[in-house]
Every structure is written in C-alpha cells, then in structure tokens.
Write a protein that binds this DNA or RNA. Structure first.
Lengths: 327, 327
DNA sequence: TTGAAAGCGATACCAG
DNA sequence: CTGGTATCGCTTTCAA
C-alpha cells in the first residue's frame, strides 16, 4: 500500500500538498493538483484510515451493539444500519452482547480504544460509560435517552389487543415481555387499556427472555398454565410461532380453537401456514434512520428530531379469526 | 482518555517503561512495575488501539464479509465468528455484501485502510484483492481457496436424497441452488448419485438465488412446473418452508401427499408444524472454527488443517413420511 | 500557493 | 533495568 509520502515524491510536491488535495482543504494550484492526482492514480493510493484516525482522534467506525444477533429481529436492523452508514462513508464494528452487561462494558471499551465515531445501541444502559461519544439508542429505548429511534409500543399493544378484541375472544392470555426490556410495559399497558374498554377478561403470562433457546420451556409452561386459552397476544413472533406449532401438534385448530397474534413481523412469520398475524416493526428502518441520525450527530449537522418514533402496523394473516362486526 | 505519557509522568518513569509493562516485554524492575500499575489503575488507562495499529501496521480488527445478513444462516455464522474472535482479543468489522461484487471490493478496500488483521469471508472471490492479509473462506468455498471452513456438500446432497429415497417417493423434484454458489453442484451430484443407485426418477428445478425476497415468485413457478411433485429435495430451508406453506394453503397434506426436506436447519425450521426435516449445517461452528483458524494464521501459529470440513447431519421432523423398510 | 515541521499515542531499538 | 528517540501515515499550523 502506497503512502502519502510516495505520492508526494512521485508528484514532486510535499506531503502537505498531497494532503490538501486529498481533503480538498486550503489552496492548491491547478498544476500541483493535477500532478498529485496522476500520482495517486498511478500508485493506486488510498489513505490509511488508521493514521487519519490517530490524528483526528476520531475514526470512520461506528459501533453497533446488539442484544442477540441470532434473534431475527436484529439482523434486519443491522442491515438497515449498515446500508445507511455505508452510504455516509462509515463502517460498523459489531458488538453482540448476548444480554450480558459485562460484554457490553467490554465492547464499549473496545470501541473507545478504536476511536469510534459513534455508537448505535439496541441494548439498554450503554449511555453510562460513553462520555463524549455520540450515541443513538435503537428499538429498546428508555425514556431518558437523548437520541433514539423507536416505535410506539403503547400503540403496538393497543393494535394487537384491538385486533384480538374484534375477533370474539373467549379466553384471552397476554404474554408479557421481560421486565428489563423497555417497551414490554408499554405494550402491556396498551393492550390492557383496550381489553378494559371492551370489558374483556384476560390473563397474563410473564416471559423472562426473548431468546430463541428458551422457547421450548416457555411454551410448555404456557400450555400448562393456560390449557384453555383461545386467544393469545404474544410478546413476539418467535413465541407466537412456537405456541402455534405446539397447538397444531396437539391438534388444536388455528385460528378456530386458538387464535394468536405476534409482534415484530419477522421475515419468517409469513412462511408458515397459517401465516402469523402480527404487529410489524420496521426493523430495517429503525437501523437505517438510527444510523442517519447518528451520522448527523457525529458531523455536528443540525438534527431536527432527536427521538424518532416510527409507526407500527397490524399485519393480518391466517392466525386470527374473521373479524366480528358488532352492531 | 488517559495516554501512556500521563501514566509515565504519574509513575515517574519513561513511556518506554510503561510500554514494557503494558506488553510485558523486556525487563522492568519490580519497583517500576508497581508504580506503573498503580498509575494505570489510578488513571483508568487503557491503550489506544489506533496508535498501536499504526505502528504495527496491523490492527485487532477482523473483517467479516457476508453475502446477506438477512438470510438467517449468516447471523448464526456471525455469532460463532464473533464469539471466537472476541475470546482471542479481536473485533469484527461487518461487511454485508448483498451479493454485489462492487460492494465487496469496496469493503476489502475499507478493510485494508483500517489495517485489518485478517478477513473471514462467506462470499466468493475475496481472495483476488487481498495481498498479504490472511483470509479464511467460510461455507461457500471454492476448491482453490487455501484456508477454509466448509461442509461436505456432496454428503449433504446424499443424505437428503437418501432420506427421501427411503420414504417411497413417487414424483421427485430436486431444487438446484444458484450456479454461482459453490456447493450447489456438489449437493446435486450427491443427490443424483443416490437416486441413480436406487433407480428413482427425478426432475430438476433450478433456482437463481437464495434471497428471501425471491421466494414467492419461485414457489409459484415451482408449483406451475411441478404440480404433481410428491417429494421435494429443497435447496435450502427458506424455499422448503415457502413450498410447505403454499402446499398447506392448497390443502395438500404434508407429508402424506407432499413430503419435503430442506437444507441448513435454520433456527425457524423447527418452529413450524409440521416441522421441517432438513440437513443441518453447523453455521455457528463454521463461524467459530473459521475465526479460530484465522487468528492462528494471523498470529503465525502452526495450523494443522488449512481446510476444515465439518459434518452435516440429517434432522428428521414431520415433513417426511415414515421410513419404508425394503426387504 | 507551497513546504517544513510538529504532533496524534503507542512501540522498539539502542545506548547507558 | 531504564530512558531517549525514531517511527508508523496523515493532518494542520506557521512561515515563507
């Protein structure tokens, strides 16, 4: 890899001049510019970002903190972030935290050691360590966080409950997401409001994780506790699918005997039959907009909205019964 | 963030000494060491990796090139890579290539600009640009590539066909993966060998991508071309699930009227009912072992096996009929 | 309009 | 054992 020195030599100018054309900053004569450009071409030179980063105390790298990349919600978010970041000249360092606070700390440290320009975080509490590094929180957002892209969980909870309430539910069970996950509570509150309004009774079923590995156990427990459930508002698509599978296996007809609605709209939720009705979260867009927001912060561009809220949307597939019109 | 200079000052020694205790290289007196350690603690100092990288011309970053992170096979692979890499003191820069050659080139350049220590690549042809940077190919491996972790596609193709052949197939259709994807051919060859041996007729159905977005179209085409298929050897789980969904939707009983086997064993393949029988590829392990191999290359440690082949495994779920014992 | 030179934060050689 | 110093590749004053 050629260096700026070699370019300077070949072009017969100083490194300062080369640097100037590279960043087109300051004055540089037409003559010199041309010679430098030729030299750059000839040597296939491209600047070393490490040296730049050392000087600037700021790299072109952005840290991406994910709770669990195996959870299919996050790859999509990552893809969105990646697309945006790339268009803006940055790259992502991946931090897969596995819901482990120590790993998070570790990553934040690594990020700092690498002069990271900013952090995109879909895990809670990253704001503690970071001092002067821009941070945008994604998806799981606490109310005190300054920059964030998230969805309206309350509305999501309402939408799910509404869809259910419209379909003549007998025995409603609401699955409640882990307490640590911001948004779980909001969703629940939204759902409860609807059921209260409609005067529909419901049971709660608390889940303690969103991890794929824990589904079997959770589903078993679910059917033990609620053998007569006929309408389930699930905390996410993974659990919804898992419950559907178990139901079909037991010969319970979906949606006639058991109707269910998920949350997230993962790519797979439409690959089953009956297809899973669900509340679609724009995972890709969360990542994309979050990355844009972060880059604006990094570059001190004016930011209109510090907290972006994206809409969620009801997606109807076959796991819900026909809507019953009440007079 | 404190620097080595400040540590040196506080400890009353030179930066050289601080550097020595940091890397414990060379001699350093007990007295000095202690003072330095105290200073480090007091200032909460940790070395700037960028400066290190500039000097060493080699960072602690590893590039990970993925064809499409939204394809659920790859997050698992990434997770494996991430786990291994992290244990060994490295971090990952994510490169999501979207099956686009230009983006790949672009990433390879960015990697170089960042003094990347090595590259893990699940896309084809990365070896061209890289000069002196260690490269380990993952999963989609060409025969000429030096370092690689992959599975035995031929065996996989055989296993799938065998499972099918054992189950009294009437109208067999083999879905053939994209020609550009190394392994597609091998799998096909493996399957064909079995069907030939058993004297079972089969049809071929060519697919042109592995992308999630293209399933609907492909499935439609599939049913148009092969309305009477009763046994499908699918090129991956996504297509298998998509075909299953369409079949169930059409009232075709799985597995009695249509049996099907997938390839990959994605996390979701067990969340449907009937569950998808499939050939399990150890995605996590491919990433994990690949990362270990790469780190060994990077650190010039002796490498026993340059090309690691991991076994695939038949996973039986409900999408295949009962095995028929022939006398 | 240009170049010389001083850093950015760490490492490693060489002399003492 | 320890410290001074050149160096990594680039950016940015400051003078000329």
């Amino acid at each position: 890899m050629a260096t700026i020195k070699e370019v300077a030599k070949l072009a017969g100018v100083s490194v300062a001049t080369v640097s100037r054309v590279l960043n087109d900053s300051g004055y540089v004569g037409a003559e010199s510019r041309k010679k430098v450009e030729q030299a750059i071409e000839e040597l296939e030179f491209y600047p070393n970002e490490v040296a730049r980063s050392l000087f600037q105390k700021k790299s072109k790298l952005i840290g991406l903190l994910l709770p669990d990349i195996a959870n299919p919600f996050f790859p999509l978010l990552a893809k969105g972030a990646e697309d945006a970041v790339n268009q803006l000249g940055y790259s992502l360092i991946l931090g897969n935290v596995q819901d482990d606070v120590e790993k998070e700390e570790e990553y934040l440290k690594i990020f700092e050691q690498n002069n990271i320009a900013g952090v995109l975080s879909a895990v809670q509490g990253s704001s503690k360590r970071l001092k002067n590094i821009p941070l945008v929180n994604l998806d799981r957002v606490e109310s005190f966080e300054q920059y964030a892209v998230h969805t309206n969980d309350y509305q999501g909870g309402m939408l799910a409950a509404q869809a259910m309430a419209d379909r003549d539910p007998k025995q409603v069970v609401i699955m409640v997401g882990p307490k640590e996950v911001p948004g779980s509570f909001e969703r629940l509150a939204g759902s409860i409001q609807i059921f209260k309004e409609r005067d529909i009774a419901y049971h709660l079923f608390q889940t303690t994780s969103f991890r794929l590995e824990d589904t079997d156990e959770t589903v078993e427990l679910f059917f033990k506790e609620h053998p007569n459930a006929d309408s389930v508002v699930a905390s996410n698509d993974v659990y919804a699918l898992a419950i559907m599978r178990e139901a079909v296996k037991r010969g319970i007809n979906i949606p006639d005997e058991l109707q269910i609605i998920g949350y997230d709209d993962m790519p797979f939720s439409r690959l089953t039959y009956p297809g899973l009705s669900t509340i679609a979260q724009p995972a890709y867009e969360i990542g994309y907009k979050g990355a844009q927001l972060l880059c604006n912060c990094i570059e001190n561009k004016p930011v209109k909205t510090k907290r972006i809220q994206l809409p969620v949307e009801l997606v109807l597939r076959e796991s819900l019964r026909e809507k019953v019109e009440h007079e």
